Structure formats: structure tokens, C-alpha cells
Simulated scan of single mutants.
Amino acid sequence: MSELTTKITAAGEYISKFWQDKPVAGIILGSGLGNLTQEIERSVEIPYSDIPHFPESTVEGHSGKLILGYMQGKPVVAMAGRFHFYEGFSMQQVTFPVRVMKALGIHTLFISNAAGGMNPAFQVGDLMIIRDHINLQPEHPLRGKNEDTLGPRFPDMSEPYSKALIDAANKIAAANNISLHSGVYVGVQGPTFETRAEYKYMHIIGGDAVGMSTVPEVIVAAHAGLKVFAMSVITDIGIREEENVITHEEVLAAAKAAEPKLTLIFSELIRQL
């Protein structure tokens, strides 16, 4: 057994002491989006600091605990707070929880994030389904010797985001009068917000929104054979020419305002699993 699989097993065995049910879905919650966990019933909360080999989140808006319970009657495992490469973690640490959730039994991964908008049609507070991504992060989570038991050396990335789940989300949104965009997410390292020139560059190459997370987790999820649904809350618009000073506090506030709509869509998708 490799070092990575040994660590995955240790983390999974520790979590299983507190929760024996096999979760069908994993949920990763982004900045200011942790309140979705209130929808989880009969829950067990485990601080990241207690789980073997788990990093600890250092970012405001990320509470740093694993929550296991039921949403819409389905067993789920949720991360209230995620890890970022810019915090100093390796890509293997950033994506380690995805490996553990897969080992616990999930087959579908739901991801949310706060993102900067680059599409002129977007407004602050809009929701964007991620239909594809562009990876501009400087390190790759699969670099190094491949673990064949975890996935193939060269994973296919032609459909990293499930088209079936995207179609289902659009139907849920239409039934509840929720306006949704669909677009391409650009993943960058951070922690600085982008310059005006960088926003324009990323829009020119095909991006609709930009953020500092999600892409590594999606790559590892694809490697592990998981279905993925991901959604961005547009918390600022960086492509406009007018004064646009962005703060993390404003990002959290915009995310909180849009959270009920995102929660409804995630909850309904999980009900349909």
C-alpha cells in the first residue's frame, strides 16, 4: 500500500468511527457558502484537526469541519470549508478530502465557490453553472507517480462536469424561477484578486468567471471516476472599467445573499440521486 492510500485509509477509518452509513454524495462549500450544512439532518460534525492527515482551513468564511448526515433523505458528507494552494498546501493536500470522500463511498461530488465575473452579462449575486474549466494553476494534483488503484494515468477530461446533472439543475431552476448562467470557470492560484488586464485576458481566452479553487478537486474527482456538479456565485465583476476595488468581505456578503438559491438547487439535485 502506498503512502497516499495509507493516509486515505487512516482518515476514512477514523471518520467511520463516528458515521457508519455510506454517503452517496460529497459537498464542498466555498467562501461564505457554509450555511447549506444547516440542511443536513441528524448530522455528525468532525473538526478537520481531528481527522488524520487532513489539513486545516485558514481562510475566513471556511469553518473547517466535516459534516456527515442526511439531505433529502440521502446520506451525504460535506466540507464546511475547503483548502487552497495559495494557503501553502500541496495540491495533494488540497485534494486529499476528495480521495477520502470517494473511499467513504460517494459517487457524485457537488462543489460551490465564490468567483469573479468576466462575462458582461453577469451581475453580482448571479449563479453560474460551471460547464467547463481552464486550468491556470501552476501545479497539477496528479503530477508524480500514478496510483493505479485510484485512477488512470491519463484521465479523460472531455466531460469533467456532468451534463446530466447540469440539465437537471436547469430544470430545477426553471421550476423555481431561479435565473442561472452557464459558463467556463478559470482556476488561478491567488491569493491576489486579478488585475484589470488579467480579467480581460482570461475573458478573451474563453473564461466567464475566475476563482482560486475547484479545478484541483474536479481533476481528482475525474481521476476517481466521480460525477461532478459545480456552481459559482458571482461575487464581483472584474471586467468593467469603472472603479472596482474588491475585498474579501464583499465576496462573503455577496455569497451569503445568493446562498438560498444555490442551496435549493443542490438540495433538489441530491434528492434526485
Rank of each mutant, 00 (worst) to 15 (best):
P97T: 07
Q20V: 14
T9I: 14
G64A: 03
D148W: 09
K227T: 14
G225N: 07
H84E: 05
H203C: 11
K261F: 12
T149M: 13
V94Q: 01
D126V: 03
S63Q: 14
F89I: 07
I46M: 09
R143L: 14
E13Y: 01
Y161D: 07
V24G: 13
V184R: 05
V210A: 03
Y86N: 06
V245Y: 11
L36K: 05
R131G: 14
I46V: 08
Y14Q: 08
P97I: 13
R153L: 04
P120V: 07
A11Q: 00
N244K: 13
E60I: 09
L273V: 15
R271V: 12
F193Q: 02
Q38P: 12
V44S: 15
I204Y: 10
L226G: 07
I8T: 04
L104S: 01
P141Y: 01
E250T: 03
H181M: 07
A197E: 03
A25P: 11
L66W: 00
G30I: 03
D156F: 05
F110P: 01
V184F: 10
S43M: 12
G144I: 05
P120M: 09
Y161M: 09
P75T: 06
A253P: 10
D50S: 15
V124R: 08
P75G: 05
Q123E: 15
V233G: 04
D236C: 10
V76G: 08
E242P: 12
I8Q: 03
E56F: 13
I204W: 08
A230G: 08
D148N: 09
V94W: 06
I166V: 09
G211E: 00
R240Y: 15
E198I: 05
V188T: 06
G12N: 02
E60K: 11
D236P: 01
V228K: 01
I204V: 14
S182I: 06
A121G: 10
P160K: 00
R153K: 06
M118I: 08
L29E: 05
S43W: 05
E60Q: 09
P52M: 00
S2T: 14
G116Y: 02
T108D: 10
S57C: 06
K261N: 15
